[in-house]
């Protein structure tokens, strides 16, 4: 039994410690907002925050956690969808199929927390999530809009 601190709640994980955080979240803890896209940390659909840092949870085993870390998933980013990034995403109607957007929003919110004045170059260097529908043009606008809302 491992204690995890997810979205401000202490949760017990009773499973194989080699399980990636992604699958513990989705299958043991019922938090399905975090998505499986590739399993090799390439696409970013599984991005969550660990102590505020964007982490690709599909390759992050539970065993690597001490239990005290604050894990935040899309469900815990805000109580009511009111995080500045979520607000910007609403205003610009960014998602298409939406499957990658939880990971995209988590990656962007971590970037803006670290760097509230992120430039286009910072965005290019940091946001490497794949979106096959192709929302990138609006995602870039959304990041700049979220900066103003923060």
């Amino acid at each position: 039994m491992i204690k995890l601190n997810v979205n401000g709640k202490k949760l017990d994980f009773d499973g194989d410690e080699n399980t990636p955080l992604l699958w513990a979240l989705r299958e043991q803890l019922g938090l399905t907002g975090t998505k499986y896209g590739c399993g090799i940390a390439e696409c970013g659909a599984c991005t969550v925050h660990i102590d505020g840092q964007a982490v690709r949870s599909c390759v992050y085993p539970i065993a690597a956690l001490e239990g005290s870390e604050e894990i935040t998933t899309i469900e815990g980013l805000s109580k009511d969808g009111s995080h500045p990034v979520q607000q910007a995403w609403t205003e610009l109607d960014i998602p298409q199929c939406g499957y990658c957007q939880a990971g995209m929003i988590m990656a962007v919110s971590a970037l803006l927390k670290e760097n509230p004045n992120a430039t286009d170059q910072d965005i290019d260097d940091t946001i490497t999530n794949i979106c096959r529908c192709g929302t990138f043009a609006r995602v870039r606008k959304g990041i700049h809009l979220a900066k103003k809302k923060a």
Partner: peptide, 17 residues
């Protein structure tokens, strides 16, 4: 605005998977 955006921003939308 699209009718299906809100739940895509909070993780609430259930895809088949």
């Amino acid at each position: 605005q699209r009718l299906d955006t809100a739940d895509k921003l909070t993780g609430a939308l259930k895809y088949a998977s």
